[in-house]
Simulated assay, not measured.
Amino acid sequence: MAAIALQAAHRVPKSRTGALDIGAATALKPLDPDVVSPAIPAFFIGHNRAGLWVAREAQGRAGGLFLLKSSAVEFANGRSAPARCALVFPAEAFELDVENQGNPLVALAARWLEGVTRHLARLAR
């Protein structure tokens, strides 16, 4: 099933020094109705801070974590079937803020990676 690809620029907040705040999740903003029709389901597809692929329906009704970009796109297309969907690829990382309906093993890996990252940060101090 084909999908319409759009590009959206969502920015990660910067700290007072001007550096990117890596710990901040990009807020996904509502789509402009002049760009995407409310009748067309839209999904944000992108990476989270851990580098995993995230697919999230624009209205927050569905979302999941995936190892591969193709899996995230397939999830979006499957959730919008039989209609087509718009795919929005934010320029910055964003976190899944709804229940993971994607690959449960990838969600476990994400939690493990977060724990390892926190542990390494403590060791580096």
Score class of each variant (00 low, 15 high):
Pro30Gly: 00
Pro38His: 13
Ser15Cys: 15
Ala27Glu: 10
Glu74Cys: 03
Phe89Trp: 01
Val12Gly: 07
Leu31Lys: 14
Asp32Gly: 00
Phe89Pro: 00
Arg122Gln: 06
Leu108Ala: 06
Arg125Leu: 14
Pro41Asp: 02
Val73Trp: 01
Asp32Trp: 02
Arg61Ala: 12
Glu95Gly: 00
His10Phe: 08
Arg84Pro: 01
Ile22Gly: 10
Gln59Gly: 06
Gly63Thr: 08
Leu31Gln: 13
Leu105Met: 11
Ser71Cys: 15
Pro82Leu: 11
Ile45Asp: 03
His119Asn: 09
Arg118Phe: 11
Lys69Met: 13
Ala42Arg: 12
Arg125Lys: 12
Pro13Arg: 13
Gly115Pro: 00
Arg49Val: 12
Arg79Glu: 08
Val35Ala: 07
Leu105Ser: 14
Ala109Asn: 09
His47Cys: 07
Val12Pro: 11
Ala72Arg: 00
Val54Gly: 04
Ala24Glu: 07
Gly64Met: 03
Ala72Asn: 01
Ala58Leu: 11
Ala110Pro: 09
Pro13Lys: 05
Glu95Phe: 00
Leu96Trp: 01
Leu6Pro: 10
Phe75Asp: 01
Glu99Leu: 10
Ala19Gly: 12
Arg16Phe: 14
Ala107Val: 07
Val88Pro: 00
Ala124Gly: 05
Ser37Phe: 05
Thr26Ile: 12
Ala107Pro: 04
Ala58Phe: 10
Leu108Pro: 01
Leu67His: 01
Ala5Pro: 08
Asn77Ile: 02
Asp32Phe: 01
Gly23Ser: 13
Ala83Gly: 06
Ala124Pro: 06
Gly78Asn: 04
Ala3Gln: 09
Arg49Leu: 14
Lys69Trp: 09
Ile40Asp: 10
Thr117Trp: 07
Ser70Thr: 12
Gln7Lys: 09
Gln7Ser: 14
Leu28Lys: 01
Pro41Ser: 09
Lys69Pro: 14
Thr17Cys: 05
Ala81Trp: 04
Leu20Asp: 14
Val106Pro: 00
Ala42Glu: 09
Thr17Glu: 05
Asp34His: 13
Leu108Arg: 04
Ile45Gln: 03
Ala42Met: 13
Cys85Trp: 03
His119Val: 13
Leu105Ile: 06
Leu28Gly: 00
Ala50Val: 09
Glu99Ala: 15
Phe75Leu: 00
Ile4Tyr: 14
Val88Arg: 02
Arg56Trp: 04
His47Phe: 15
Ala25Val: 04
Ser37Ala: 07
Ile40Ser: 15
Ser80Thr: 04
Glu57His: 15
Pro30Arg: 02
Ala121Asp: 09
Ala93Met: 01
Val116Met: 10
Leu113Phe: 10
Gly51Met: 08
Ala24Thr: 07
Lys69Cys: 12
Ala42Trp: 11
Asp97Arg: 15
Ala9Asn: 14
Leu105Val: 13
Gly64Arg: 07
Ile4Pro: 03
Ala109Phe: 14
Asn77Pro: 02
Asn103Leu: 02
Pro104His: 02
Ile45Met: 06
Ala110Phe: 02
Ala81Arg: 04
Ser70Gly: 08
Ala72Gly: 00
Ala3His: 08
His119Ile: 10
Ala110His: 05
Gln101Gly: 13
Ala124Asp: 11
Leu31Phe: 11
Val116Asp: 15
Ile45Lys: 04
Ser80Tyr: 05
Val35Cys: 09
Lys69Thr: 11
Gly115His: 00
Ala72Met: 00
Gly78Pro: 01
Ile40Val: 14
Gly23Asp: 14
Arg111Asn: 14
Ala5Glu: 05
Val54Met: 08
